[in-house]
Computed example of a mutant assay.
Amino acid sequence: MSSSILYLHGFRSSPTSFKARLMADAMAERGLAGAWACPQLPASPRQAIDLAMDIARRQLEGAPDPRALTVIGSSLGGFYATWLAEQLGCQAVLLNPAVQAPRDLATQVGEHRMYHSDEPFVFLPEYVDELTAIHAPAITRPERYFLVAATGDEVLDWREMRDRYAGCRQRIVQGSDHGLSDFARWMPEVLEFALGAEPVRPQ
């Protein structure tokens, strides 16, 4: 049974994203705010994964089983979550994950603005190499993974997600979009997987 959650947001996103806020509220309602972490990830994938790894290891301190931690990753965060799960042996929930992040983000080199703050940042060419360095070559122990993939994702191909996480628990959402704007409908199932208990259903 998992007891803590680490949420990793996607490219240009933040801890104030819609899904992250829903999850944070649900954890607080359960009295589990202290078991929730959702950092602002640096643009550098190497720095982002180092930060996430540090937080994950702190969350696992004293835990008898690495599955006491579930890393939930959205989009690029799903790419990171897969790497962490393979390194640590923890659980992972992937929300419309970037399967081929080096390929997909090679087109995004340059200056961008954050979705939720309009703050500028630069995605450097070397960041693509950093992504390549943290690509998990295979999924081991697929029972540790839960994929939520939307067929209406306008950014990433849900079929790549389905195939990458073959053998894992999967919820293929018909329609929806890359941001999973109907996430409140699927969050109870995510919480059930992460916490191993009947979830608090959103109002």
Rank of each mutant, 00 (worst) to 15 (best):
3 S>C: 11
4 S>P: 06
7 Y>C: 06
13 S>M: 08
14 S>Q: 02
14 S>P: 05
14 S>V: 00
17 S>M: 03
18 F>N: 14
26 A>I: 03
27 M>G: 07
35 A>F: 00
38 C>M: 01
42 P>Y: 00
43 A>F: 05
48 A>S: 13
54 D>K: 05
58 R>G: 09
58 R>H: 09
62 G>L: 05
64 P>H: 11
64 P>L: 09
68 A>P: 04
70 T>C: 14
82 T>D: 02
83 W>F: 10
85 A>D: 09
85 A>G: 14
85 A>E: 11
87 Q>T: 13
90 C>Q: 09
91 Q>P: 10
93 V>N: 12
95 L>D: 07
96 N>R: 08
99 V>T: 07
100 Q>D: 14
102 P>C: 04
102 P>I: 10
102 P>A: 05
107 T>M: 10
107 T>A: 12
109 V>F: 06
114 M>W: 09
121 F>M: 08
123 F>G: 09
124 L>M: 15
127 Y>W: 08
131 L>P: 01
133 A>R: 01
135 H>Q: 12
135 H>L: 07
138 A>S: 12
140 T>C: 06
147 L>H: 13
150 A>S: 15
151 T>I: 11
154 E>I: 13
155 V>K: 11
157 D>G: 06
163 D>H: 14
164 R>D: 02
167 G>D: 07
168 C>P: 04
173 V>F: 07
174 Q>T: 11
175 G>Q: 03
175 G>C: 09
176 S>M: 02
184 A>L: 05
185 R>M: 10
186 W>R: 01
189 E>M: 01
190 V>C: 09
191 L>G: 02
192 E>S: 12
192 E>Q: 14
195 L>E: 08
200 V>D: 02
201 R>I: 10
